[in-house]
Design a protein around this nucleic acid. Sequence first.
DNA 1: AAGTCACGCAACCGCTCGCGC
DNA 2: GGCGCGAGCGGTTGCGTGACT
Length: 323
Amino acid sequence: MGRAPCCNKNGLKKGPWTPEEDLILTNYIHTNGPGNWRNLPKNAGLQRCGKSCRLRWTNYLRPDIKRGRFSFEEEETIIQLHSIMGNKWSAIAARLPGRTDNEIKNYWNTHIRKRLLRMGIDPVTHAPRLDLLDMSSILRSAIGNVTPSFMNLQGLLGAQALMNPEFLKLAATATLLSLKNDHNPSNLVSQVQQINNNTGNCQMQNQVVPGQFQTPTQSNNINNGFSMSPDNSIPSYLGEHSYLNAQQNQVDLLQDPEVVHFLNNANQNIGYESVLSTPLSTPTPLNSSSTYVNSSSEEERDTYCSDVFKLEIPESLDISDFL
DNA sequence: AAGTCACGCAACCGCTCGCGC
DNA sequence: GGCGCGAGCGGTTGCGTGACT
């Protein structure tokens, strides 16, 4: 037996709500309170489905809804929470007072997602989209900062690795490690080796990260702008150079039991540490949020985000040097 | 000025979850 | 434990509007 429809569709109005309908619904809920959505339209005298009434109320008519442009703080919170929770819009909305899941979902799809893509970041995994990066530039960036010991890349990884798509990921990881390690080549080589060993066939992405989530004070994570996920594969483009004062957000997030639950139960390869690794000792972002937030054009956000995630990749490396 | 296109957002649809019986 | 129902959630659609030609 099929599931009964939520309402009898016959004769019920669909489409945009009129001001009159809004008024009827608002007045009814003010008098009787929300709930019992199935019977609400009949009791209120609306030719609408109860589901439609609930959506209209929760997404538009609720008095505590904050309308208007998302602030940078809100936007960063969305990105951070999305990196932890994924498309759990209602859970994200619960941490953004006055914003609805629908609004956040729309904003993500129409603004944030596109911006991340323009920045070369996969909006699903929050990792760099390596298919968009120039291979030679990646290698150049990784190697250009280190001593010749790292030049023996072929010996380190095997020539075939350079033809392996997974190696692209590894190369980018090396790039980011080089930044992270403050150009310390020995650290870089050992970490790349360790990654290679740990991941076996270089399956750096999509691996389950074992272990329990640690708070920043436990993890002693120190980074140089790009923070890394536990498998060192994912940078935080919202790290130290965050265009917001992210510290407060992160502290709040860490105190949120549901967020910690997500982190502790994370079985997806998302850079959850990236959310947490902004050094708490650096409360002042490079750009003052107090001045930047007020200039809230989309282009300015793009520009700043691009700077945050700039890899400074030279153009001129010839990959044949390594083959 | 008219037509076309792209974008943003409100609303819908279908599925899942949780609760009561 | 199984079933029915209400409510909630996430994905998708379609319309309105502004930008562009």
